[in-house]
């Protein structure tokens, strides 16, 4: 006879942990994007990841961890709230930037041929 309860328990913790870990990973990716991407519109795109996907994953992880409790319900409400507000906030910021006349950096990337790049030049 297999005792299912402890196994399920372990699975639950594992799933929760995995969700949160992936969420944290997206958070990291989003943050590095905000720092490294070239212009405002691409950065806001990266920030959007942390606001939506990463947060939702983290919340989902916490809900699994909490089980069927009041806390989970509250977390779900937080999730709905963020689901509504985060994209709207991103939209508002992008809209404001657009109306203020900020142009995206368009154009194709033309990387130099590796042969033309001098190693010293790259360092400087």
């Amino acid at each position: 006879m297999i005792e299912w309860a402890p196994i399920l328990e372990v699975l639950r913790h594992g799933t929760a942990g995995a969700f949160m870990l992936v969420g944290a990973l997206f958070m990291l990716i989003g943050s590095s994007g905000v720092l490294r991407l070239p212009d405002f519109y691409t950065r806001i795109h990266a920030a959007g990841i942390t606001d939506t996907l990463a947060t939702v994953l983290l919340l989902a992880g916490m809900m699994i961890e909490a089980g069927f409790t009041q806390t989970s319900a509250k977390l779900a409400l937080v999730g709905i709230f963020l689901f509504l507000t985060s994209p709207t906030a991103t939209h508002a910021v992008a809209n404001a930037a657009h109306k203020a006349g900020l142009k995206p950096r368009l154009g194709t990337v033309e990387p130099p041929h590796p042969r033309d790049v001098d190693l010293n030049e790259e360092k400087s």
């Binding site: 709230f81 509504l84 507000t85 709207t88 939209h91 508002a92 809209n95 109306k99």
Partner: peptide, 16 residues
């Protein structure tokens, strides 16, 4: 219409 998104969402959020 620039603000239409904000207005719709705000109308949903303010009662909450």
């Amino acid at each position: 219409n620039h603000h239409i998104v904000l207005q719709v969402i705000a109308k949903m959020l303010i009662p909450i």
